[in-house]
């Protein structure tokens, strides 16, 4: 830990940093961040030990013949994945702190092994065999009206009680 004499820790403003970073790359319009006046809330309707958990990731699959050109080319569609298919999850074109970390450890961004442990310990009832991919979108509308309803439908079909999202 670096020696410092601050009286408090300050947060890094992701919104300010990203606006300046993208402006420096000649993106004309600053991104409009979602801002909600209120948020829905639902308490668990049964004990966690009886709940089935579904894991949601912002990582996604790319077609085998995909050739990256520009960020807007990425096929950002929600996807339903079997646990056995996760080897082909692709993160390289997503924006994350590549100078500081890596995604070689699946458990660091998709805690399936932890979920299995929690099931074994009886802390949660079950974990879905499926993983739910929710790619980040420039368009709020696509996330709210297309992608999220699709994920909710899939999770209902799979009997999932609780969604746990781990953004990458």
């Amino acid at each position: 830990m670096a020696q410092s004499r601050k009286t408090h820790r300050s947060f890094v403003s992701y919104i300010d940093k990203s606006r300046e970073f993208y402006a420096a790359q000649a993106y004309d319009q600053p991104y409009q961040w979602a801002a909600h006046d209120d948020a829905p809330f639902a308490k668990l309707s049964k004990p966690l030990s009886e709940c089935k958990i579904g894991l949601v990731t912002t990582s996604y699959f790319l077609p085998g013949d995909f050739e990256y050109r520009v960020p807007s080319d990425l096929p950002r569609v929600p996807a339903l994945a079997d646990r056995s298919e996760l080897d082909s999850l692709d993160n390289q074109y997503l924006s994350w702190a590549k100078d500081e970390t890596h995604t070689d450890d699946l458990g660091s961004f998709l805690p399936l092994a932890q979920a299995d442990r929690l099931v074994t310990e009886g802390r949660i009832g079950a974990v879905s065999d499926k993983v739910y991919c929710l790619p980040t979108q420039y368009s709020h509308r696509q996330t709210q009206r297309r992608d999220t309803p699709q994920l909710i439908e899939w999770m209902k079909d799979d009997g999932v009680d609780v969604a746990v999202m781990i953004p990458l």
């Binding site: 830990m1 670096a2 410092s4 890094v12 940093k17 990203s18 300046e20 970073f21 420096a24 702190a97 100078d99 500081e100």
Partner: peptide, 12 residues
């Protein structure tokens, strides 16, 4: 482990 990432992240 250290605070260096604060400066490096989306650095301009």
């Amino acid at each position: 482990g250290d605070d260096g990432w604060r400066e490096r992240f989306m650095h301009v």
